[in-house]
Design a protein around this nucleic acid. Structure first.
Lengths: 248, 248
DNA sequence: TACTGACGTCTCAGTCCGCGAGACGCAAGT
DNA sequence: ACTTGCGTCTCGCGGACTGAGACGTCAGTA
């Protein structure tokens, strides 16, 4: 197994992290697991601790550090956004309407990616914009698969009902007409993360004149396909990770 | 800001990871963000890529890599298990029964930590043992807060009903009597991760003769307090991470 | 109580590994 | 065709990383 990256210090640090992946270690255990000299193992672990990639438990053993969760969280967001660009673009081109990707942020939803219809009458939502969770097809999607109590709490003040959300779950998509904004209609579908949990909503939205009063009829198939594409991308990245873990 | 760990290569690698935390970067952008010489930035990024701490997106830009999620997952498990030991021990000592921590694993639950009553008649579950999700108070806890469809799928073949799970959610704990195993009764309560999602169940279990046919009456308060303690520990670790992120 | 062994942490001389100036090839823009 | 910027590679140099050994502490044993 060629484990040499060309930078010996980084190879050794990676060995230290792998040793700690198996569980908390005293320095002596780290020496045994890594085969590094004791001062080297100590120095590298303490340096990684400085950067919070490693921490210490109450017994003073080395454990993996909190920085890993921060970086992993950023990595997951990158992956979703990277995959979203082409999918939203294709949706926009196929449907002729603007497309967006929404995530939940506290009591609101935030637009994390968008591909706008280039000109004329359209529904334009800038990336970073926060919108209500009480109206709109994306809000329905982000709420429909929540756990029972959170779902019911989210229905408070909403323009949709539990019965509507049950239908959303059965169909696998949601639509709205003049629900969030007068004259705007939309269709949304769920993106699931590797755990199977709904983590985002893919939407297309536009003026009722074009999209019609039953936008699902026109666009649901395409929107669901786009959302499923993102779901697959995330699952594949996760499966590739798990597969590598098995081979180690 | 003293960012020197004593190992220059690791300091530089940490700077590279931080730069990529902000989003995908070409080598040129990495050079600009880190201030490293181009060949150095290239060499370190490629070395980190070799160890899967960094990856490349479809445009060839450097992004954070999948190994971070693997390590972060292991770190989260460590934190839960580290906190579980003392909590389960205190539960065992207070209730005089064996205590366990269960997590969901596919269609089963797995005992990830345990503190046994030292001797005599007791319910002893070894760490690593997998048990059914269709019976037992811990199974109820692991299922009660699932999203609607998953919850109903889990009820198939189960010894408990949707009405029972609704009561579990309202009370905040679950009990079982001769449900998984004849003569054994148990009480369980939920542990929530930083996202608020139920990720584990704390249980005490023992013979009906001692625990009684209404074990919740005896032990629910203590079990809930133990589970809440674990929930707090995980939330605090997460809040500390978020706070550090803000100061950066 | 004294001794021993193991642990974690630190020192410092030596060497070899990480560094970057510069070269190279490629692609895009003018 | 020329220029610029990009990513990747080379190689001589020096300083950063290394580990044998020292040191202090603690726990276990006689």
């Amino acid at each position: 197994m060629d484990n040499s990256s060309g930078v010996g210090v980084l190879d050794k640090a990676a060995v230290v992290l792998s040793a700690l992946e198996a569980g908390p270690s005293t320095l002596a255990q780290l020496v045994a697991h890594t085969g590094l000299a004791r001062p080297t193992a100590h120095r590298l672990a303490v340096a990684l601790e400085h950067h919070r990639l490693v921490a210490r438990d109450v017994q003073g053993r080395f454990i993996l550090g909190p920085r890993l969760a921060e970086l992993a969280s950023a990595a997951g967001e990158d992956r979703l956004l990277a995959a979203a660009g082409p999918v939203l673009g294709a949706l926009r081109d196929h449907c002729g309407e603007s497309a967006q990707l929404y995530r939940r942020q506290g009591d609101q939803r935030i637009c994390v990616a968008a591909a706008d219809r280039p000109m004329g009458l359209r529904d334009s939502i800038p990336v970073g914009a926060t919108l209500t969770m009480q109206a709109g097809s994306a809000a329905q999607i982000l709420l429909a698969w929540e756990e029972p109590d959170r779902l019911h709490r989210g229905l408070h003040g909403a323009k949709f009902t539990a019965t509507m959300l049950s239908a959303v779950r059965r169909r696998g998509w949601a639509q709205s007409v003049s629900e969030r904004e007068q004259g705007v209609a939309s269709v949304s579908a769920p993106v699931r993360g590797p755990s199977g949990r709904v983590i985002a909503a893919v939407s297309i939205s536009g003026p009722i004149e074009r999209v019609s009063r039953q936008p699902g009829r026109l666009h649901a198939g395409t929107v669901v396909a786009g959302a499923n594409k993102l779901t697959e991308v995330l699952a594949r990245a996760h499966a590739a990770t798990a597969r590598r873990g098995e081979s180690a």
